[in-house]
Nucleic acid binder design. Structure first.
Length: 734
DNA sequence: AGCACGCCGACT
DNA sequence: GTCGGCGTGCTC
């Protein structure tokens, strides 16, 4: 990839009535379908059009001239051009690039780029209502509404109903009657725009130098920079300057965050710097916000978008910068539907637009680090904590030498540290990446283990709702009074700790402490997350017991102690990236300690004090750890020194899944240097009632894995009842 | 992805 | 004899 790739301006191609055009539809079809431009219409590439498909009408995108694969007599006319901004040419190219790379259909990628049909219509003018005539049949409710409506400005129907204390139906009836008439409401004023002219904060010398380099990159075509620095080093302030530069140049910026639902503190920081919040994009947006934001982005009216990975597919016409914050975060990998890695696709999107991408992390992924060291990426290093706060001291607690008391999970040293921390008026965080009360429930008499009926997984006890849950599907059941296998009464015992059980232990140890349980079960949605942040900041909480949900980039000044309850969790299991991920997660958790004036302290409980991950954390020697990982991957030809692609074969009938997996193995490509492993039972051999087998393709670095897999799949026939899912560059289990 | 077409069990 | 179950296949 060339450094100064400046794409030529793509001029949309015009098609007049009668022209035959290719329309890409948001469906998993092999390619675009051909249509004819109807009389009286004219369209151009990128235009959104409504077309007939079978008995349905769908919105698609004009992709170019018809391919001519079907006879022209079969071509149907397009119905209309949709009143919406066209997709920029680069968005169409991006869709096709991602589809080719991920071995998905272009239509399923397009689906992530265009919203549903109803969200594409121009916004309806908001209507308010005022009184016009006496109602035909005056009822008390109707009279009340009319009295309310007679005073004050025109208001929406729901508001009149609320003020009058009646249902909306009453108001609607009055509108139908003609007793109320509509008046267009003054368009709601657009929210204030972020202002790049506002003065930025004082930057340290290192920050200023990094910001300078990013500003310089802003106008200089495609580049990738890695902004690397520990928690609290001030990375965010640095890339804010790059955003300011993009805004000053009239270009849009996109910031990808791993968990947008938890971005309340991030939004606040942004608003402090730029005087207004950016546009926000994630999968849980309501329909109205979604439509408004999509249009604003497509019109180029949104200077900054912050979002989860799906924001990458928004149709920015003037994108000037992409930032991927916490670039190492595994949640950037989309696993269902089209399987893609948002960080990698962000780099591709930047290259297609000829703009800079900035990857940000305190614990960069090995891939990114290798790219940075080889010079493919620019390395911007922020050396130390911005405010001169010393990094937290990390102590290793060897659980073999100093075990927790019977029935407990906190070693004596951690118990003491907890007591001291609270006595000193500070806060503590206990980290355990396990939801629920206990990960396994078994019968003391017969040894039966309670498992999910439709997954290869144990049921996890959740004591708060009082039930056993499967963490892989929606299954749950009440905790049975007797063993379902041998019938023994009161014989079921909880094995191992979850955060709920840990909270119980802390409650017994420190009865006066105010506890907060923070898991995805208790933190549903942005409001709950914001409330959590507020309560911790207001010191309404002494001890936080949480899963990885609290590992994110929060900043809590009073938090001085972090206890990692099980540093070994996630280290076993033969996963290619287990060590790397555990290191990143624990380093991130450790970074929560001592971000205010008081120094922080981190205690790591482990059975493996000699494990490279534990040693690297204790000595804060990230680079040596990464170097060791790199050597191992290089020696075994694993990514980034080799390439992987996974096929997951799944279906409800085990025999046909097996048959399909074997057929794929028989028809595997025979290419020098390319090996096929499997079929083997997939990590979750049964998931949601579907049997799963896995094949793994290993190729040398630079191997054209996507093309190989595409040809492979084309050459093998599998039963229609069996699904084959492709995962290029899988990050999960090996 | 939907939707239609098609071939086998429990209802009027 | 029909209503309806979801397996299979097509949609420019």
């Amino acid at each position: 990839m060339s450094e100064n790739h400046t794409p030529v301006a793509d001029v949309p191609r015009r098609f007049d009535a009668g022209a035959e055009i290719a329309v890409l539809l948001p469906l998993p079809l092999a390619g675009a379908y051909d249509y004819r431009v109807a009389d009286g219409l004219a369209v151009a590439t990128g235009d959104l059009v409504e077309v007939p498909l079978g008995t349905r009408r769908l919105i698609g995108v004009v992709a170019g001239p018809a391919a001519g694969a079907v006879g022209e007599t079969r071509l149907k006319p397009i119905r209309r051009r949709v009143e919406a901004p066209p997709l920029p040419a680069v968005s169409l190219r991006f869709v096709e690039w991602v589809a080719a790379y991920t071995v998905a259909s272009p239509g399923s990628v397009l689906k992530m780029t265009i919203p549903t049909a109803d969200a594409l219509e121009p916004p309806k003018p908001a209507l308010g209502y005022v009184t016009a005539a006496a109602p035909a049949r005056p009822t008390p409710a109707r009279t009340r509404v009319l009295a309310i409506a007679a005073e004050g400005p025109a208001r929406p129907a729901v508001e009149l109903a609320r003020e009058a204390g009646v249902g909306v139906g009453v108001v609607r009836a009055l509108i139908a009657d003609g007793a109320l008439v509509a008046r267009p409401l003054r368009r709601e004023r657009s929210p204030p725009a972020p202002d790049w002219r506002r003065p930025g904060p004082a930057l340290s010398a290192a920050q200023a130098a990094a910001a300078d380099r990013l500003r310089t990159a802003a106008g200089a075509g495609f580049s990738v920079s890695l902004l690397d620095g520990v928690a609290g080093a001030g990375k965010t302030e640095v890339y804010f300057e790059a955003i300011a530069a993009a805004m000053a140049a009239g270009r849009q910026s996109l910031v990808l965050l791993p968990e947008i639902a938890l971005g309340a503190q991030w939004l606040e920081r942004f608003a402090r710097r730029f005087g207004a919040e950016p546009a926000v994009w994630h999968s849980e947006l309501g329909a109205a916000v979604r439509r408004r934001t999509w249009r604003a982005v497509a019109e180029g009216a949104t200077p900054v978008v912050v979002g989860a990975r799906s924001a990458l597919f928004l149709p920015f016409p003037r994108l000037g910068l992409i930032v991927v914050d916490e670039e190492h975060d595994p949640s950037f990998k989309q696993e269902d539907g089209v399987t893609y890695h948002a960080r990698d696709m962000a780099v591709v999107r930047a290259r297609l637009s000829g703009i800079p991408a900035v990857l940000v992390s305190a614990t960069p992924s090995l891939e990114t680090m290798v790219n940075a060291r080889s010079g493919r990426y620019r390395l911007l290093h922020l050396p130390d904590r911005h405010a001169g706060v010393p990094p937290p001291a990390i102590e290793v607690l060897d659980l073999r030498a100093d075990p927790p008391p019977r029935g407990g999970f906190l070693a004596p040293a951690l118990r003491t540290a907890l007591e001291e921390t609270l006595a000193g008026g500070a806060q503590a965080l206990l980290f355990l990446n396990r939801r629920g009360y206990a990960p396994l429930t078994l019968c003391r008499r017969c040894g039966h283990r309670l498992h999910c009926p439709s997954c290869t997984a144990w049921l996890v006890e959740h004591r708060l709702p009082g039930r056993l849950q499967c963490h892989h599907c929606g299954f749950f059941r009440p905790i049975p009074p007797a063993c379902p296998d041998c019938g023994a009464e009161a014989s079921l015992v909880a094995c191992g700790p979850g955060v709920e059980r840990l909270a119980e232990e802390v409650g017994a140890l420190l009865p006066a402490a105010r506890l907060l349980l923070a898991t995805s079960d208790t933190l549903t949605g942005p409001t709950a997350a914001a409330e959590l942040v507020r309560r911790i900041e207001a010191h309404e909480v002494d001890v936080i017991v949480g899963t990885q949900i609290v590992a994110k980039g929060y900043h809590f000044p009073l938090l001085t102690l972090v206890g990692v309850v099980d540093a070994d969790l996630g280290l076993s299991g033969g996963d290619l990236r287990a060590a790397e991920r555990t290191f990143q997660l624990l380093a991130q958790v450790a970074g929560r300690a001592g971000r205010g004036a008081r120094p922080g302290r981190v205690l790591l409980q482990t059975h493996m004090p000699g494990h490279p991950v534990v040693r690297a954390l204790a000595t804060a020697d990230r680079d040596r750890f990464l170097a060791a990982e790199e050597e191992e991957r290089r020696a075994t030809g694993m990514p980034p020194f080799g390439r992987l692609a996974a096929l997951i074969v799944s279906g409800t009938d085990e025999a046909s899944v097996d048959a399909a997996a074997r057929a794929l193995a028989r028809g595997a490509p025979r290419i020098d240097g390319v090996r096929i492993l499997g079929p083997a039972p997939a990590p979750l051999a049964v998931l949601r009632g579907r049997h799963r087998r896995r094949l793994l393709l290993h190729a040398p670095a630079g191997g054209a894995v996507s093309g190989i897999v595409r040809r492979w799949l084309r050459s093998v026939r599998v039963a229609a009842s069996v699904r084959v899912q492709v995962d290029i560059d899988p990050i999960g289990f090996l």
